[in-house]
């Protein structure tokens, strides 16, 4: 690249005007993207009287965490008044095994599909990839029947099974595309030295795969945590994940609308994935672009 200072128009009025224009637009966009989270956060820290006074964009008069406490442990969702906590725990119990199992399966099948090009490996990969494209509405009905048949309907176990299965397509995609750039000579040399399939996987491939494992874990965690359709369709009452509980809390019409509690609950439900994004955003973006077939 040429040094920008030597490009025509790099100095002088026009350049400065251009920079000003760019920065104005970029900062305006940043304000628009940050606006909602600011409103939600400040509302969650206000008391109801302050909210009713209207000033949506004003900072709260004082930091008041009552709404947070209520959203976490005493807000009423349906007939239970235990706040989001039990549902939050449901989501944790649901996402940890789904993420671990689907990542492990994806790593193994991606490894087998990329470094052992047996006949039909590419066709099998293409067929498995199709699972990334489907809208999940198309499998809801048979899945409900199957879960009932297996005796795990309306349970967290059922959701773990569902999320694991529909995660395999993505994790296989991640690992297969990562291992495809590993030279096959590496595997041949290791085989020559007497290492078997699993030994090569465990001692050579896995240590090489840390970045893609992080991508896969973050992607799966975000997907499973934020998922709503399966949770709403296959569970009710005590087995619901946090997204469904949040929706029920927001749409409950029984008592006086407590907007601050709603907003605190929304932030609690969003917190885990937001934290992951802030800590490991780079890997999250890699997963997004690799899995760009589905938003």
């Amino acid at each position: 690249m040429a040094d920008p200072k030597t490009l025509p128009g790099a100095s002088g009025k026009r350049y400065l005007l251009g920079r000003l224009f760019i920065w104005t637009l970029l900062l305006a966009a940043a304000v628009l993207y940050l606006g909602p989270i600011y409103v939600v956060l400040s509302t969650s820290l206000k008391d109801l009287a302050e909210i009713r006074a209207g000033a949506l964009l004003d900072l709260p008069h004082e930091l008041n965490f009552t709404a947070w406490r209520e959203a976490w442990s005493s807000a009423c969702i349906g007939v239970r008044c235990e706040g989001l906590r039990p549902y939050f725990l449901n989501s944790v119990i649901m996402s940890v095994p789904s993420v671990v199992i689907s990542t492990l399966i994806g790593a193994l099948s991606g490894y087998a599909l990329s470094l052992f090009r047996f006949r039909g490996a590419n066709i099998i990969f293409a067929l498995m990839l199709f699972g990334c494209f489907i809208p999940f509405q198309i499998v809801i009905l048979p899945m409900a029947q199957t879960l009932g048949f297996l005796g795990i309907a309306n349970s967290i176990t059922g959701l773990i099974v569902v999320h694991t299965i529909y995660g395999i397509s993505f994790t296989t995609l991640f690992f297969r595309n990562y291992y495809v750039s590993v030279p096959q000579e590496l595997v041949r040399a290791a085989t020559m030295d007497g290492a078997g399939f699993f030994r090569i996987f465990w001692h050579i491939m896995l240590p090489l795969s840390v970045p893609i494992i992080v991508v896969s874990v973050i992607w799966q965690f975000t997907q499973v945590w934020n998922e709503f359709l399966f949770g709403a369709s296959f569970t009710s009452g005590g087995a619901q994940p946090v997204t469904v509980a949040l929706n029920n809390l927001i749409n409950s019409t029984t008592s006086v609308k407590q907007y601050n509690v709603d907003m605190a609950a929304a932030l609690i439900a969003a917190a885990p994935t937001l934290v992951v994004y802030i800590i490991a955003g780079r890997f999250f973006v890699r997963g997004l672009t690799a899995g760009a077939v589905k938003g």
Partner: peptide, 14 residues
């Protein structure tokens, strides 16, 4: 990174 339920909640309030 956040669930669309959360997005919906935020915008519904705004």
């Amino acid at each position: 990174a956040i669930s669309f339920i959360v997005t919906g909640t935020a915008w519904k309030w705004i």
